[in-house]
Amino acid sequence: MTKSELIARLAERNPHLYQRDVERIVSCIFDEIAAALARGDRVELRGFGAFSVKHRDARTGRNPRTGEAVDVDEKAVPYFKTGKQLRELLNDGEAADAAE
């Protein structure tokens, strides 16, 4: 499912809304999550999952083709941890419990 398919499915469930407004809503949600992460905030959507930012230290990496050492700067990477409910939904509510 792409973003435009998501918008189409939501528009179908909400015939009273303009498709244009559904588009704005979807963009607003993802823009806001991105903005929060850029500020260094966490976004926790209970049952669905949590977005956070993890920091990676600077390290010396290697160009895999030439074997040459290259300095990699420290950086921040976005991270998503799946929520319990969604994890169970993916596993039909059984395997997730057994695995814990």
Partner: peptide, 9 residues
């Protein structure tokens, strides 16, 4: 370092 939830979104 705050936590954003459904309410703020």
């Amino acid at each position: 370092g705050r936590t954003i939830t459904r309410a703020q979104l």
